[in-house]
Design a protein around this nucleic acid. Structure first.
Lengths: 159, 159
DNA sequence: ACCGCTTGGATGACATGTCAACAACTGGAC
DNA sequence: GTCCAGTTGTTGACATGTCATCCAAGCGGT
């Protein structure tokens, strides 16, 4: 480990900007979502993933993988959402260990009521502030970073 | 509130990419930081802000504002860091209510030991994967979003 | 000096996330 | 069939973050 290569001015600006945006965007989106729809961002993400799925149901591990959550976290969170009536659990017929999370009618109503406002907020605070070129650049750059990190997670070779 | 304007394909790609990058980058940077330096990201941010400050000390509220943390969160976190010997608290002579957080020698050693590796990780997983144009674009776009949201936070008028 | 209003920070109760153990089950080797 | 390593999901203890509340101190008008 030789001399560290610090960030130059532009890199530093990008990195600090990213972290600050991350924090502010999170705070604001979470605030509006809670106020308008009574959902936290994790709630929203769970409901959203479930609603995009053919049978409105997913195996726990499948959902955990998609969301990049630990099984433990998902299990705890689902217990809470279940108590609020947003989802239910069902046994898996083909695997005695497994279980499904199922979107309940109330869960469907909740996500349908929340989605338009949430998308509008994402537009208002992020997307609509960017040029078309910036949107594309953001898409390209984030996916590149994600691909690298996903590879690392699943043990793919370097470079 | 008329028909919602959903995200088109490119916007959706950017938004999903952003959220996924956010999560993966967080996990990986936090993992490496903890492994290599025994610090959490919040720890690192506190120490980093303190070390960049002239007297290695800041008023609690000043630090909380910089980090966009609630005072409560900061207070709790500092108590924990204080117990680990990374920072100390001092009374403020000019304001009897106030207090300073001060970087301790151990805190300074910790941040100096952690910084090179952390910066290297930021490079490896993000910065060095981007072209110079992308770095600039990221800097520009994030700062634009931040400016808007900061305005909102402090109650500045809407355009 | 007195009063009420604000501010800085601490605190306790509670919500959420993490980590390590665990039980139930699967599926392949033999 | 029996064994056993690996997988699935749950659980409890603990770390962390949030929210409402509190206290002490400042500030400003009278």
């Amino acid at each position: 480990m030789g001399e560290p290569r610090w960030l130059d001015e532009r890199e530093d600006r990008a990195w600090r900007g990213y972290r600050r945006m991350r924090r502010l965007l999170d705070l604001e989106l979470a605030r509006e979502l809670m106020q308008d729809a009574g959902l936290s961002e994790p709630d929203y993400d769970v409901l959203s993933d479930l609603s995009e799925t053919p049978d409105q149901r997913l195996r726990l591990s499948e959902l955990a993988d998609r969301m990049l959550w630990s099984r433990s976290r998902l299990s705890h969170h689902l217990t809470r959402m279940q108590q609020r009536g947003l989802v239910t659990r069902e046994e898996c017929p083909s695997d005695g260990r497994g279980a499904f999370v199922v979107l309940s009618p109330a869960g469907r109503r909740a996500i349908e009521a929340a989605a338009p406002g949430h998308v509008a907020a994402v537009r208002r605070h992020l997307i609509d502030l960017l040029t078309a070129e910036e949107v594309d650049a953001l898409g390209a750059l984030t996916h590149r970073v994600v691909d690298r990190l996903s590879g690392r997670r699943t043990g793919r070779a370097e470079v």
